[in-house]
């Protein structure tokens, strides 16, 4: 049961990461079109503004994938010298700190969107983008990060209570950049 929840969460985040990656590719295409049109003396503009929104979306939606891939950079100088139980305790502290922060960010991201909606805020550009569109996508990403990380806290606690430290390590342990790469 726990294992299938973990696998499900990983699969969802991998799928999200792929969507985010495709948005990045769309942004590449948009920029190339913009450059080409500019060479022809036609102004499209706006690729600059849109790539900013895409960047905000990558950051807010990508962090959950990075989390379930154990890729947020951690300094594990002390951790690597500990026994499995010590490691598990540090991992629990880390994931609780992360989930707590994620919840605060999601909570504080809402007033940003809320003000935008209340003011009908438009970007001060010729596109005059209604800012609620990019900000809703951005806000939802942080909410998902808060949910994903809270779920990980829950699963880790359950696994630790069952004494399954190995499974807990594969869920919220630390990986070096290279272990992930290969």
């Amino acid at each position: 049961m726990i294992i299938s929840v973990i696998a499900g969460l990983r699969r969802i985040n991998r799928f999200i990461a792929l969507l985010v990656g495709l948005a990045l590719i769309a942004c590449v295409a948009l920029i190339l079109i913009d450059i080409s049109l500019r060479q022809l003396g036609i102004s499209f503009g706006g690729s600059d503004e849109i790539s900013g929104y895409v960047m905000a979306g990558i950051a807010s939606w990508g962090v959950s994938y990075t989390l379930t891939e154990l890729a947020h950079v951690r300094i594990d100088l002390i951790r690597v010298r500990l026994r499995p139980l010590g490691k598990a305790i540090l991992d629990l502290i880390a994931i609780v700190a992360l989930a707590g922060t994620a919840i605060v960010i999601a909570f504080e991201a809402w007033p940003v969107l809320q003000k935008t909606i209340a003011h009908h805020a438009l970007a001060n550009t010729s596109l005059a983008t209604p800012l609620w569109i990019p900000q809703s996508i951005w806000f939802a990403g942080w909410v998902w990060f808060a949910l994903s990380s809270s779920l990980l806290v829950l699963l880790t606690v359950v696994l630790m209570m069952k004494g399954d430290l190995r499974q807990a390590d594969s869920l919220v342990g630390a990986r070096t950049e290279m272990e992930l790469e290969l």
Partner: peptide, 12 residues
């Protein structure tokens, strides 16, 4: 693509 998202979000 997924590798890029993973590393970028870590940096961001």
């Amino acid at each position: 693509l997924t590798g890029t998202v993973r590393i970028t979000s870590m940096i961001m």
